[in-house]
Structure formats: structure tokens, C-alpha cells
Amino acid sequence: MDALNTKPNLAAPDDFYEDLIGLHRDLTEAQSALVNAKLILLLANHVGDPDVLREAMAAAREGISPHL
């Protein structure tokens, strides 16, 4: 279970982060949510491997408990 690469892999992390935040500039919450969803779907398709995707989903959810 180490198919998901969580080691540094971005050539220019600060540039990426700036682009990511910039992507949402001047958007409403709903528009931002839609953009994020589209981004996830595009990247998921690029990754393809279901094990990597499941691992990424688990890592994203880690430490977040259901709100009851």
C-alpha cells in the first residue's frame, strides 16, 4: 500500500499553490466548489489507477470524523 506518491513531487510548489488559489479568484463558494470538483475528476482520470485513487481518498479523509 504505497502506490500513492506523497513524497515531494512538485517542481515548483509555491508556483503551484499560487495557481491553485488563483484559480478560485472572484468565484462564489458554489462556483469554487464546482471548479474543485471538476479538478478532482480531471486529475482522477489522469491517475486512473483505482488503488492510488482509493489511497488518496483515504489520506484526504484521515483524521476527519463524521459530523453527527
Binding site: 464546482l34 471538476k38 475528476l41 480531471l42 482520470n45
Partner: peptide, 24 residues
């Protein structure tokens, strides 16, 4: 849910241009 609706709309928005999303 709201997030389920968001993903649904994201799939439909992408499907027009990107063939992968049509499978979803």
C-alpha cells in the same frame, strides 16, 4: 447532498468537451 450535486454537475460540465467524463 450539495456535494453530490456539485460532482454530478461537474461531470456533466466536463462531458461536453472531455470524453472521459461521458463514462461517468
Amino acid at each position: 447532498s450539495v456535494v453530490s450535486r456539485t460532482f454530478r454537475d461537474a461531470v456533466l460540465a466536463l462531458a461536453h468537451r472531455h470524453t472521459f467524463a461521458r463514462k461517468l
